[in-house]
């Protein structure tokens, strides 16, 4: 079964008197284990599409199935639960909770999921080790570099074993070497653990690493390339 199934998706915004058509009939299907990059110029609708799939925003029309569920039929609490249990997020600006340590930032998703403390701790330590942050568990975001913060964000996104990780320009704030390291990390996670990734990005290095590149123009899918 596909993780994401989108058909004829439309999203319109009211901006003052003007109606902005951000998505104009997108069709897209993502299968488990894929490592997909969503490319396209600014305003092409990448982030909007990502927000739709992330259950952060609702479409104006069209069909949107995530993890087999029709999002239109879910309440806002059910959407919260879907995000909590089935989706992982990585943001351009890390967005860690500043008052929590690296460990706690990655941990709290599990905590919200209701996992028992010991199991949770074990899983988070393993995950932080996977992303290369062993030994930095107790540092607060302010005490970590940008790359390290983004690795914490990756750990947070994958710790809950989501069906799909959505990443919006994850490398945009990082220097080139750090960005390369992060991409390799995510590739490894995809390869070794079968985690499904969907990126919205401008970064050619991400495109290079991706197995599938979906190019968007003017709110529509213009090209869908599988390598």
């Amino acid at each position: 079964m596909s993780i994401v199934h989108v058909s004829d998706l439309h999203r319109e915004y009211q901006q003052g008197a003007v109606t902005v058509k951000a998505l104009r009939g997108v069709d897209l299907t993502i299968e488990p284990g894929e490592f997909t990059a969503l490319m396209g110029p600014s305003g092409s609708g990448k982030t909007t599409l990502l927000n739709m799939i992330g259950a952060l925003d609702r479409p104006t029309s069209g069909k949107l199935l995530v993890d087999g569920k029709d999002l239109a039929s879910l309440s806002s609490s059910q959407l919260s639960d879907l995000r909590l249990h089935r989706l992982g997020f990585i943001f351009q600006s890390y967005n860690l909770i500043p008052v929590l340590s690296a460990l706690e930032n990655a941990e709290f998703v599990l905590q919200l999921q209701g996992m028992a403390r010991d199991e949770r701790r074990k899983r988070v330590r393993e995950t932080l080790a996977q992303v290369g942050l062993a030994g930095m568990e107790d540092r607060r975001p302010g005490e970590l570099s940008g790359g390290q913060q983004q690795r914490v964000a990756v750990a947070r996104a994958i710790a809950g074993k989501p069906a799909l990780v959505l990443a919006d320009e994850p490398t945009a704030n990082l220097d080139s070497a750090t960005a390369q390291g992060l991409i390799e990390l995510m590739e490894k996670l995809n390869h070794e653990h079968g985690i499904t990734f969907l990126f919205a990005t401008h970064d050619p290095r991400v495109m290079e690493a991706a197995h599938r590149v979906v190019r968007m123009v003017d709110g529509k899918v213009a090209e869908d390339l599988r390598k």
């Binding site: 992330g54 952060l56 806002s76 609490s77 919260s80 639960d81 879907l82 995000r83 909590l84 249990h85 989706l87 997020f89 943001f91 967005n95 909770i97 500043p98 998703v109 919200l112 947070r156």
Partner: peptide, 13 residues
């Protein structure tokens, strides 16, 4: 913004 992140990560209202 921070509260928005919590919400995006699945914190119920």
């Amino acid at each position: 913004r921070e509260l928005g992140v919590l919400k995006a990560l699945g914190l119920r209202p």
